[in-house]
């Protein structure tokens, strides 16, 4: 894990609780993400998902612990770590296109104006925005289109790590479905590493290579790392037919519904790291004969 592309080591976040004491959101959280991996993190509100995201983005500092990318500890925000915020965070006085060129110009300062624009238009096109729409201001776009612009801005910058903070949280289910597919389309064919927060189990299964499960806060931890053993390319309507789909889904539902609360609040021994337990669910035919409904492999 220490050799992963992105390694989160003994991350701890404490806040003053307003009564002179301290409130620990999570403690000694450690996990790694490999290059090109798409990792989702699932957990209830208040378990510190967004805090982890902000630390990875460099927008806030952990109380203890380090985050290393490519072997170097990160400090502060960087163009190497792109962020898609839940509320889109487009600049409302700029058109959709200008919002993307804004990012590209910051990322590639020596590019010509034309090159920046062509590059931006290409990425807007990848998320299904072209023609007249890209010259509109965010206020004239629907929520789905705004989030597309935000995704285009993040991908166009080609960051080493892309952080998505509940990007589809504010969208209706139908729009969400389309944009998830567009996100997959943009992502596949790149070796973009993605770390995404979500509340939606089906969304996580559709998108992720691996799902990290967090227990409830306070004293939350990343308890499990569930491998999504469904081959890509994945299509929403097809993956539900896959034998592993419901096995994985049930496991996730059980965890979030029951075990996240049962496992919550367990204090760790001094210096112990909370590495997540890897869970591999394999129910395809060749494996089904040999009974392993659920294998827990301690890493």
């Amino acid at each position: 894990m220490a050799n992963s592309f992105l390694s989160i080591e003994k991350l701890t976040q404490r806040y003053p609780d307003g009564k002179g004491g301290e409130f620990t959101v999570f403690e000694n959280a450690s996990f790694g993400i490999e290059k090109g991996e798409f990792v989702c993190i699932l957990g209830h509100s208040g378990c510190g998902k967004s805090t982890i995201m902000n630390i990875l983005a460099g927008l806030s500092e952990p109380t203890e612990g380090v985050v290393k990318m490519d072997g170097y500890a990160i400090s502060g925000p960087s163009l190497d770590r792109g962020v898609v915020f839940q509320n889109y965070s487009l600049l409302p006085w700029l058109t959709a296109l200008k919002n993307v060129t804004f990012g590209v110009a910051a990322r590639f300062p020596d590019w010509s104006k034309q090159k920046i624009e062509d590059h931006s238009i290409a990425f807007l096109d990848k998320v299904g925005l072209s023609g007249d729409a890209i010259h509109r201001k965010p206020s004239q776009l629907s929520g789905g289109m705004r989030q597309r612009v935000s995704i285009a801005r993040a991908f166009a910058n080609e960051p080493k790590l892309l952080l998505l903070d509940e990007p589809f949280g504010a969208l209706d289910a139908l729009t969400r479905g389309t944009i998830q597919e567009e996100l997959l389309k943009v992502w596949s064919g790149t070796d973009q590493t993605v770390f995404m927060i979500t509340h939606d189990i089906d969304e996580a299964i559709l998108l992720a290579d691996r799902i990290l499960l967090m227990t409830n806060g306070p004293l939350a931890r990343v308890a499990e790392s569930v491998e999504i053993t469904i081959p890509r390319p994945r299509v929403r309507t097809d993956i539900v037919e896959h034998p592993n789909y419901y096995a994985i889904r049930n496991h996730l539902v059980q965890f979030l519904g029951k075990r996240s609360a049962e496992l919550a609040g367990q204090t760790s021994a001094e210096g112990e790291t909370h590495a997540p337990e890897t869970v591999l669910i394999e129910k395809t035919d060749h494996a089904a004969d040999e009974q392993p409904l659920l294998q827990a492999v301690k890493t």
């Binding site: 983005a57 925000p77 960087s78 770590r81 915020f85 990322r107």
Partner: peptide, 27 residues
């Protein structure tokens, strides 16, 4: 703060942030 965070994640300097984000936002 979201817009300032956009500037921060794009590594804009203080002057660039002031002119391209804060000024239009506060205009």
């Amino acid at each position: 703060e979201d817009w300032v965070n956009v500037a921060r994640t794009h590594e804009l300097g203080a002057f660039k942030t002031a002119f391209t984000v804060v000024l239009p936002a506060a205009a």
